[in-house]
């Protein structure tokens, strides 16, 4: 099943991502929606800037989803949409949606995809505070 993977500079249509995984073969649809939070490490966040190396991000995302299909062969459909550019507080930064026959695998596969995405997909986040900006996770 070809997964629906994209990186966009437009607001994410969450309903469209959920619709992309709808299938009569699945009894469970699970989703993770990451949104922009107003604070980070005690500092007030004004907005976020996401930068993406699109071609590699999509390649790596494809690997992540392939690993998920290998771990959960019953996985029916997967959609991952990640935003890039400048985001305001509350904006949706990422949506992961999966459809499986039963619910247990839908939770597990959804968590695996977002956790692994955060480790390998080439997207960078710069937080903007009242008094400056910082690349998240850049330094130990």
């Amino acid at each position: 099943m070809t997964p629906h993977l994209s990186i966009t500079d437009q607001p994410i249509d969450v309903a469209a991502a959920l619709a992309a995984v709808q299938t009569e073969a699945a009894g469970a649809v699970n989703s993770f929606i990451g949104t922009v939070r107003n604070q980070s490490g005690g500092r007030r966040v004004r907005r976020l800037h996401y930068e993406s190396y699109d071609s590699m991000a999509l390649t790596q995302l494809g690997h992540v989803v392939a690993q998920a299909y290998a771990k959960w062969p019953m996985l029916e459909k997967v959609a991952v949409v990640h935003r890039k550019g400048t985001l305001a507080l509350g904006d949706v930064a990422v949506v992961v949606a999966v459809a499986t026959p039963h619910r247990a695998e839908s939770f597990a596969a959804c968590q695996f995809i977002i956790d692994t995405l955060k480790q390998v997909v080439t997207i960078w986040k710069r937080e903007e505070y009242e008094d400056g900006t910082e690349w998240v996770a850049a330094h130990p």
Partner: peptide, 12 residues
Amino acid sequence: DEIALIPPVAGG
């Protein structure tokens, strides 16, 4: 080769 430097990623 298409070569790129990849600092710590922070998607999601």
